[in-house]
Design a protein around this nucleic acid. Structure first.
Lengths: 236, 236
DNA sequence: CGACCATTTGATATGGATCAAGCGATGTGG
DNA sequence: CCACATCGCTTGATCCATATCAAATGGTCG
């Protein structure tokens, strides 16, 4: 089911992001310097292409690079002891992934569909962060955001199937450009593994939401939110 | 059931960091600078006492302080829309909590039993971090550890009741001093809300583990691990 | 057209929730 | 110091949401 293998991302070795500068990073109204990190990555990074279902990096590999999605989409995941797959997150264009605090990746990453990814050495980034406080701050902010994201996931996983699916749809709608029509890059299996459900339950839940007119599902990969407040109520 | 109210921790205003769980300051081989943060907190902080079940800070309050458990134990939690309570983490002596990346706390915190807590202003800590790179580094490390912890929780929440309980026991055993006897400060309800289960399921699971000789439960708050590998197998 | 996938739908099984009762320890007021 | 209320925990009976097993449908590509 999980095609991986193929084209490996990048070589490997150590590194270790030593960004010290810290806390007070939280409060800035973005603006001028808000994309210092992006600039740096663009400048120092290389764009790599990954065909659909190929591995970008593997769990337990040294985490030497930081990645930013240019086009396409990416999933991170972990295979649990019982063989199930848990998806850590979906990354869309503009999103950064591969952020690690240990020497090794805790998740694997794969291209969901053909994707272009901007790749930067962590060591390079660390050097730059030492020079440019804006870069350091952004890295720190990014970390905080990631923590928040995982916390929300944690809270989500104790809710009902309807709530999880509704929440997923709202999340994807917020992240996508069109606010009420979603073009899903991932399969039902991906969604199920993201939400800790089975593919059948995801499918049935979508059918059920459609029957209550909360959503429309013109094609399996396209979902239109018809009644956002009904979804939010579930989500709450 | 949830007694809160009572003695509020500290006044309030802005600042920032994240919550929940973790990081046992205890396990670092430490060394020279490994406890620069601890030194700073000891020096600049004040010890506050909280009776059992009193609130230390509330969700959505400005996160102005960072906390370190001196004695007793603390839980962080959130009340979900459906009225259930989700516990974010348990903090034992030496653990730091109240770390936030936004201006406001995402969880509330309460003393599980009478507790003494070292309280430091975040702004003070920030200033100190700017002066002492070791402090900054430790804060950063702490954050990374917190992220890892939450990721692990996320993975845990998609597993079976037996796996969750086994994992909880192993976690508590690792964190406590005695490696195979655990003295639980929290109630079954706390454990249930931590693991996303009901109190009955937690109780039945413990009974079941006892019947397979994996553990012994001499008193409800005391648990002895008899067959760690059986637990780890579940945990895996 | 035919093969292969992804998705949906149906039938049944089951783990954990819910409802309900009992039990032991702790604490309080008489 | 006892009687009783309360609280935390366990155990039992039943229910239900979601998993599991199975099959049909639809879409895509060679």
């Amino acid at each position: 089911m999980l095609t991986q293998t193929a084209i490996r991302a990048v070589p490997s070795r150590r590194s270790a992001m030593s960004t010290h500068n810290l806390p007070r990073a939280a409060d800035f109204a973005a603006g001028h310097e808000a994309d210092a990190l992006e600039q740096t990555m663009r400048l120092m990074g290389a764009v790599m292409s990954y065909p659909r279902n190929t591995e970008i990096f593997g769990e337990n590999e040294p985490a030497e690079y930081l990645y930013r999605v240019v086009s396409g989409s990416v999933r991170t995941y972990k295979i649990l002891s019982d063989g199930r797959r848990q998806i850590g997150g979906f990354y869309l264009p503009g999103d950064i992934f591969g952020l690690e605090f240990a020497d090794e990746h805790t998740f694997s990453a794969e291209a969901i569909n053909d994707a272009k990814v901007l790749v930067v050495k962590r060591s390079t980034l660390g050097t730059q962060a030492n020079r440019d406080a804006a870069v350091a701050r952004e890295l720190f902010t990014l970390t905080g955001r990631e923590l928040r994201r995982v916390q929300d996931r944690m809270l989500l996983l104790v809710r009902s199937a309807h709530e999880r699916v509704a929440s997923f749809l709202l999340e994807m709608a917020d992240r996508g450009s069109a606010s009420s029509a979603i073009e899903l890059p991932m399969t039902r299996q991906d969604i199920a593994d993201y939400l800790g459900l089975t593919i059948e339950t995801v499918s049935r839940t979508l059918t059920s939401l459609e029957s209550t007119a909360a959503i429309e599902v013109p094609t399996s990969r396209r979902i239109v939110l018809r009644n956002r407040s009904a979804l939010s109520r579930l989500n709450s």
